[in-house]
Design a binder for these strands. Structure first.
Lengths: 323, 323
DNA sequence: TTCAATATGCTCAAAATGAGTATAAAAAGC
DNA sequence: GCTTTTTATACTCATTTTGAGCATATTGAA
């Protein structure tokens, strides 16, 4: 164990604004000095564990997030620990091995304190293939993936690539599964269709790549976070961490749609949410919007006593065929 | 960042034998020297990351598991990273901070190579309250938890403790949720009902504690692993990692019951498993057992193309009321 | 031959789901 | 003031899935 370790905490801080999932990013202060990453690739806020003062990782994460972005995160959950060799290009120069414990944090929409250098970005700018809310969208990555499969050196490998592509991108009878966001990113990475895959290879032949890049392997971490929220949505009432205390059912639906990346059947959505007794009406109506005013609802905390894995079901989402 | 870090990999290696989930344990070689833990508390196999040679954490884990137990693990999945201060009593003497990345591994029943010092233990010896397959079992921990709630210093806190206890131990209308294994362990820990909670406190007043102890916080890690398998069971075909290539439906059911810790309705279980097209008959029958011989089945890998989140549903498990 | 034990097929009511249709209540356009 | 547009909300209905149980089939052992 000669080579030293550095333990980092990285945060995927999510909010949803204007029906778009947003992720809070910073620009790495050290990018210029190393020249290893493009100077303008957005990064997730990350900070070291202070082994002397931070009693838990979560405390270190909250401290780091506040320091770097000025935001006090509420709901927080550990995601995954990333430690593959070569995550940080600086490692190769005999530097220390970088281990990052990634966390997912959910916050209500708010403005970042000016001057801190943190910015909200649309999460789907980085993972555009994950947003399937617009039905007519073309799918260039599907064609590119098919080409990659076809270029496989052996027939067996070709078959395997096709299989993986078909399953993770929902081209089979099983349909699209929002939960598989990480598998999709990793497949695109292997296929050389995201720019990060070309960092280690020849610069000249570098293709454009699908979606915006992030620093290091932060896009992979973002994909992990997206998969986690989407999964958790279904059996834990986490959406309410992203909403104000009262909200309309349409607001709730749009929020779920933004995270899940799909459209839902409106009437059935409200039926499910009501039947699960997840929310209760406040009696007051929302005004100022076009159309019939909607009732404001609030989260029913008691649902935790009453239901097994209370979460938001996705009516109309199952078995949806690929376009 | 003066204090050095040690990064450990810990493995929860699970198998199921004779309808009992088993976990592979070792006896810590260093326990005698420090005197900090009871010399005979079983521990999870753990080993350091070799930052020079281990390309990934998973590789380090496979290497460490093989070295310490002689077992080559198959299915492997990262669980959680534990890094709270004070996990290892030796930390207090100015030692280094211990960070453990825990993995879950599933293996088919097999015998440990003799002499390596590893042993299979019944997982429910450590977490006896998690096994609800026997209907008539008394529940001493429920009474003890109630006493702890009653002893709360304030009324608000008492209410809160009662609420937590009721929800995690399935005393509410929501019923028992196998997935909440970690919450239950943590509640018992806070209530001082597991022996580990008394390590830091006065030795004299130490109560017996429910269930067998493990070294350090390994029981918490085990609870995390149990919760994870139980959750994953439902949407990924992980059970088949624990079964031989062909098996009877009853074998499959007993295995699921062992992991889930509950009994299932037999006819409905086979209906679900069949309807989900998770398995296919081989045509051959099992012989030698009492009763009508059962057909042998095999896992249908193609199910991954056909179904969203293919896993084993738990018929008859929902809303089961507390005894 | 009978019994105990297991496997497997089948029924039936209740609940949940998918895909709508229908109606209500507001603001905006004219 | 009336119509149009827009959103909210109620209700329907066929289909599927679930919970619970009964009935029958096949084996080895008493």
């Amino acid at each position: 164990m000669s080579r030293p370790l550095i333990l980092n905490l990285s945060a995927v801080i999510l909010a949803v604004t204007d029906d778009q999932p947003r992720v809070l990013t910073v620009y790495r202060r050290d990018a210029r000095h190393t020249g290893a990453t493009r100077a303008d690739a957005p990064a997730l806020p990350s900070g070291p564990l202070d082994a002397d003062t931070d009693r838990t990782l979560e405390i270190a994460l909250r401290r780091g997030s506040l320091e770097q972005t000025g935001i006090e995160v509420g709901y927080v959950e550990q995601l995954y620990t990333f430690a593959d060799r070569g995550r940080d290009p600086r490692e190769r120069d005999g530097g220390s091995r970088l281990v990052s414990v990634a966390y997912l944090a959910l916050v209500r929409e708010q403005h970042v304190a000016a001057g801190v250098g943190a910015q909200w970005q649309n999460a789907y700018d980085f993972l555009p293939w994950e947003d399937r809310r617009v039905p007519g969208s073309p799918a260039p990555h599907i064609a590119a993936l098919a080409a990659w499969s076809a270029a496989a050196p052996s027939a067996a490998l070709r078959r395997q690539r096709e299989e993986r592509g078909a399953i993770s991108f929902g081209l089979t009878r099983a349909g699209w599964d929002g939960f598989q966001a990480l598998e999709r990113y990793e497949l695109l990475y292997e296929a050389g269709l995201v720019a990060e895959a070309w960092r280690e290879r020849a610069r000249s032949s570098r293709p454009r790549g699908i979606g915006r890049s992030m620093a290091l392997d932060h896009r992979r971490i973002l994909a992990t976070a997206l998969a986690r929220v989407r999964g958790k949505l279904k059996y834990r009432p986490v959406v309410f961490e992203l909403l104000p205390p009262t909200f309309t059912l349409l607001q709730l639906q749009r929020l779920v749609e933004a995270l899940a990346g799909i459209r839902l059947h409106k009437q059935n959505f409200r039926r499910l949410v009501n039947a699960a007794r997840l929310v209760e009406g406040t009696g007051t109506l929302q005004s100022g919007s076009p159309g019939r005013p909607a009732e404001l609802f609030r989260f029913r905390r008691e649902v935790l006593r009453e239901r097994q894995g209370p979460g938001v079901r996705l009516p109309g989402a199952a078995g949806r065929r690929a376009r």
